[in-house]
Design a binder for these strands. Sequence first.
DNA 1: ATCACTCTATACAGATTAGTATAATGGTGC
DNA 2: GCACCATTATACTAATCTGTATAGAGTGAT
Lengths: 187, 187
Amino acid sequence: MTGLREKILTTASNLFQTQGINSTGVDTIVAVAGTTKMTLYKYFGSKEVLILEVLKQGHQDFQNWLNDKLSNNTKQPSEKLQKLFDYIEEWVTSPDFHGVGFIKASAEFPQEDNPVHQLSSQQSQQFKQYIHHLATEANIKDAEGLSLQLSLIFEGAVQAEQMKRGSGAIKYAKTAAKILIDGASTQ
Amino acid sequence: MTGLREKILTTASNLFQTQGINSTGVDTIVAVAGTTKMTLYKYFGSKEVLILEVLKQGHQDFQNWLNDKLSNNTKQPSEKLQKLFDYIEEWVTSPDFHGVGFIKASAEFPQEDNPVHQLSSQQSQQFKQYIHHLATEANIKDAEGLSLQLSLIFEGAVQAEQMKRGSGAIKYAKTAAKILIDGASTQ
DNA sequence: ATCACTCTATACAGATTAGTATAATGGTGC
DNA sequence: GCACCATTATACTAATCTGTATAGAGTGAT
């Protein structure tokens, strides 16, 4: 079992978040990962493929983590929606939080026909749909509107946290989410 | 009257938004602006200086535009806060909207000691303080909390709009803002 | 021991980058 | 005409980038 592919993935993920994607060269990645370019290009045909794989992995990790938390710690569907931002806070404030990939990637690759941008956009929409799913299960009338608002707050909070670490933006995002959820529930 | 400096500024601003900052070379900027590198480096000592100037200009334009709108079209302080997101919507949906500079810049320059990141962070905070100012004038009790929440929604909406143009995120951001403002007013 | 296989080491190609040096061009004021 | 000025045109340096070519080192199986 190599684990080299995995090592390259996590190394690239960290560097992309801390240095930026375009600012991180392939040479830097392999140097930090303790391997060579030949190996990197064997597992990932190009830097673009590597970027896409990093995004996929990060998104999947987040979705799995969140889903497990919600499945294991809540019973009623309405409870999930209420506790959503509690877990998001836990995720964002955890020490190994390294940002949300698709938000940064879409900024670095603004062109709509770019594969990285397309995947980012797709992941953003996927997350919105996940909230939509939670909202409909909780019998929210305007599930579409609420899910869009909650994803707005999510992206804004992550953006703010990324802009200035430990800004406490998540706390206010949490109360804002609570207000919006309560408002949509009693309708 | 030259206007060449201005021309370079607006050209760079457009290219930075549509292609990304790091992905836009100095050669491209001068080619599109119809000038040469010598002139660019005469007005702006380095690419970093140019980036900073573009950010300053864009932020100032936005703040001036928003402030004028609010000053001219509202009378009472509480009205300003209510109409804030109406004008933000007008700004975002306008055809020559080219994104909010400091949001993208902070993504492309994640390192906190980077001058571009620092300016972005500073501008983000400045905008939050502007909302805070509006909130205190409107006699909102928890002005700090509300202004943070509204700036979250703003950044999230811009992010969403940038991710997928014409997503209608602004409309939902508007209603979310209304709910939060009303909630903070009747406290 | 030899084959097969993964990984390393290193050097390289070709393109692109930021920034500079130098000479020529064009217009304005006098 | 002449001097002054901003601008252009072009060529260059030196670094950096992605991606590849080639040869060698290590390991495990049979």
